[in-house]
Design a protein around this nucleic acid. Structure first.
Lengths: 189, 189
DNA sequence: GTCTATAGATTGATAGAC
DNA sequence: GTCTATCAATCTATAGAC
């Protein structure tokens, strides 16, 4: 067994991971169209040749990003959710993690909208994004004390997305108290 | 007074309107970055020269679109709202108009997200989009029998946006009944 | 598997005719 | 005020060296 033979196929996996991470960050910052192939490769400390060897073309990278992204953030949604006891604090933690994630990735919502728009116009990506939302709903539903958990989860996620949209464009328009009042009201559904 | 002197400054106004309408439709279809200057001009039956004479550059057109768009759709939100008597039918009409507008412009939500993303990254457009949301909230609030109308309007709009996002990517995920149940529950806030 | 170099197409924007 | 022609920059993608 060689010692530094990690360079065999591990470098390929490393490059793939670097490109996916760079795509996540750069697309959140500049958008799908604003992040060029060269810029994406450079952000991953590689060149465009590596990108094409890995994903074929730019769309290949985007599809891989949607697929990878699918499992990534869904877990974070119900993160500290089951840790807290009473239901109001659970909702507060849910909303808090949504508007300002623990790892400081406040731009993740922009990526969410970018990939949603991309999927709306790209049939190949639509099913993957649909899966992503489905998983998020089920994961949240499993921790929800409601008569119809999946229905309640659908409403909670929808409200958080819509409130965050309004808040990002006008921080004063949506207070935390309003958000919590709305989330609480939807729990009865 | 000349007879056909409408060509004086009315042709300019006509061109401006054509370009704005073309931008609305083409950007909803292909996105801000996907709609090139030439394609926008051609869709308006003009050339790029007319676009630059009218708006200076592409950003000028986008800013004018956001501003024009601001007043346009806000009116449609509370359209048939005050016509119907009981509150449940009002909510049903609100939701119905949201997911499938009367003029068949189902792509308007895509434009909404496009311009929202554009405004998140363009300081000059942010205030205009903030105004647009503010107007939509107030207009809906004025027709809402709630203790705190503006707060309720904020929640209703947020829920509709979030539900439409999930439904467009997966039509089976959000039923009309679920939407109405959620909207009704938020009215108490 | 990754990089360098480059081809071919498209982009935003400008200048001058009308 | 609008159009035609055109430039420089940027983009996606490919080919060949290593």
């Amino acid at each position: 067994m060689a010692k530094t033979q990690q360079t065999q196929q591990e470098r390929r996996a490393d490059t793939r991971q670097r490109l996916l991470t760079a795509a996540r960050d750069l697309i959140a910052e500049r958008g799908v169209a604003g992040a060029s192939v060269d810029a994406l490769a450079e952000a991953a400390q590689r060149t465009s040749g590596a990108l094409y060897a890995q994903f074929g073309n730019k769309d290949g990278l985007l599809l891989a990003l949607v697929d990878h992204w699918k499992d990534t953030t869904a877990n974070a949604i119900a993160a500290e959710f089951e840790a807290t006891p009473d239901i109001e604090r659970r909702l507060r933690a849910l909303w808090g993690n949504f508007v300002s994630p623990p790892d400081g990735a406040e731009a993740w919502v922009l990526l969410e909208h970018e990939l949603w728009l991309y999927a709306c116009r790209t049939a190949a990506a639509q099913a993957q994004v649909a899966d992503r939302y489905q998983t998020a709903r089920e994961q949240l539903a499993s921790a929800l004390p409601a008569a119809t958990p999946t229905a309640a989860a659908t409403l909670l996620i929808a409200l958080m997305i819509g409130l965050e949209m309004q808040r990002r464009i006008d921080p004063d328009a949506v207070s935390d108290e309003l958000a919590l009042a709305g989330l609480s009201a939807l729990l009865s559904c």
